[in-house]
Design a binder for these strands. Sequence first.
DNA 1: AAGTGGTCTAGACCACGTT
DNA 2: ACGTGGTCTAGACCACTTC
Lengths: 231, 231
Amino acid sequence: MSRLTSYRDIKKMVLDRIQSGAWPPGALIPRETELAAEFGCARATINRALRELAQAGVLERRRKAGTRVSMTPVRKATLDIPLIRREVEESGATHRHRLLTCEMSVPPAHIAARMGLPLERTALHVQTLHMADSAPYCLEDRWINPKAAPEALSADFAALSANEWLVQNIPISAGEIAFLAENASDADAEILNAAPGAALFVVERLTRIAQEAVTHVRIAYRPGYRMTTGI
Amino acid sequence: MSRLTSYRDIKKMVLDRIQSGAWPPGALIPRETELAAEFGCARATINRALRELAQAGVLERRRKAGTRVSMTPVRKATLDIPLIRREVEESGATHRHRLLTCEMSVPPAHIAARMGLPLERTALHVQTLHMADSAPYCLEDRWINPKAAPEALSADFAALSANEWLVQNIPISAGEIAFLAENASDADAEILNAAPGAALFVVERLTRIAQEAVTHVRIAYRPGYRMTTGI
DNA sequence: AAGTGGTCTAGACCACGTT
DNA sequence: ACGTGGTCTAGACCACTTC
């Protein structure tokens, strides 16, 4: 027999005890040393299993107080935020994109505020329509802070979409992301080939490098789009 | 100095090298043994740091091929799916709920199909309006498989919302979750006090225990709702 | 003060994928 | 075949919290 007691096995067994009701919500479970003895493995192995279950929200651990089954399982959903091109291609379609706008202009006040730009300061505005085969897939409306990403001014977004260019040229960074629903404006509707007022799934993302906003993007998906994941 | 080389420090230093551009997207980084020598710590420490960064989507690791900086930096967003009551309370408002429907009936075909129920089989249908202070917050439309959760038939959902009851009575389990946008139906609009056709942010969740569907829920939020998280 | 989880080490063996 | 990450061990010390 291969590895009788991998940390994966421990996780399964612990989950099993929870789901079977042997360890109900709120229950204190045995300490690591006891479980290690019971399962015949090192404490480090138990530790890894329990640590991962705690990270997943199944357990709550506190020094000295011990490990308990969560009372309110905070379910966490992990969403992948892929490149739009890849997302389209994985659905089996061909990805194309069309550059609609690429110019310096003054962003709307709420976007300037979120990016921390002074009012009236211009930024690079790039609008791109992404298509799956020949149908509109989503509309990317992006503002780029020229101070934080000066190279963007000379990039050719008609060749490589802004979405993809930024991923390849801006290092890993922090930011916020929001998901919401909006009624399609007349402009959105025409571009996405949707009915005016149709409910659109929208993702807004603000990306920073060292506190400074680099780019703000609003991606509005075609009607009917669903973002899915397991729990 | 305390801990010179905790796995957290390693993570920070690696992230720093990535964000500074020293290790650009796609770059192959040194192997674990080399980093351990450089930082003067055990390989296990390096392993934990790199493993967590890989889990966060920052690195991509493959045996024999080594560890690379992800080409697609912003890859994963983790959303907490809290109790609705807690979500409301954290915004500073008071949570109340009103039970609108609670009866056995035959679910629409697409829901029966997703739950794996035979056509015409009845299920428990529970509709709850959640309110923040006195304003509608979201509409919970839930179907419960009586075979998988028979105790639900005798629960008092007027006292404890179905959302909360299930969390407390059904053990942690697997499922799928989807986020989408829908135009408010006339019924939705009236209940949520929104304009008919308003774009609503909708979460649909299917919960299973051991392959069997326990409950399907559609939660439609009031117009203007945003689900946000860091990256 | 004492007990629990949190982390680190040094070494070992193994699994997987590339070559 | 071989090199890289994946995991496990046994032991140790530490940090935090409750008692």
